[in-house]
Amino acid sequence: MVQALFEIEDLSKTYISNSVEVHALRGACLKLYAGEMTVLLGPSGSGKSTFLNILGGLDTPTSGIVRYQGDELNRYSERKLTLYRRKSVGFVFQFYNLIPSLNAWENVALTTELSDNPLDPAEALEIVGLGRRQKHFPAEMSGGEQQRVAIARAIAKRPEVLLCDEPTGALDSKTGILVLEALQRTNKELGTTTAVITHNASIQQLANRVFTFKDGRIDSSHVNSTPKQAHEVDW
């Protein structure tokens, strides 16, 4: 039996913006399993990103429990959360979020400098197929390439978990496939637990497990016994 890396119980998050309460999460419950690739589906405002941010220690829940390897993340101090992000979590965002003044290699080195046993930045770039573009700055690369640098950056520190928020959202299907291939490869080769948020329902065919969000709760979930390869998916 695969072990649950994350156990989330009754997770709620309420923002107060301009004195209006926004309920982003209203009691979500789910488990993520080690080494699996999970896809989180759902419309805009359904709470996926908030959920992912809490999972990655970027945000804290209003109530509920997030267990990571048995530890309650929701009780972590700011310092412990920073350490957790530093050691265990890799992020990939929709808009790549590369530092424009650093080249590809340096953007990856940004995280390897923080970890104890990282991949070589060049090796990480090799994994995402950008071994030849190490000296290029973000402005000199296509969106797909930039996103793959972001993936290299996320995996270079050998995180336990890779959290991807709409990684293909800003890409066309051809480059999207390249990015998904890179994600699948790291998931397989490094055994990194991966969670991917997406609007694109066809991406669920790649996942071991799929959750659908609606109004801050899990609306449905299913297990995919035979995940497809990225290039087999029809967009």
């Binding site: 970027l58 992000r85 992020f91 808009f95 979020n97 995280t111 520190k157």
Partner: peptide
């Protein structure tokens, strides 16, 4: 702003 968010997401402390 977003670069700062990213640095923190990578594990850089305040």
């Amino acid at each position: 702003r977003e670069q700062i968010g990213l640095l923190k997401a990578c594990g850089y402390s305040s």
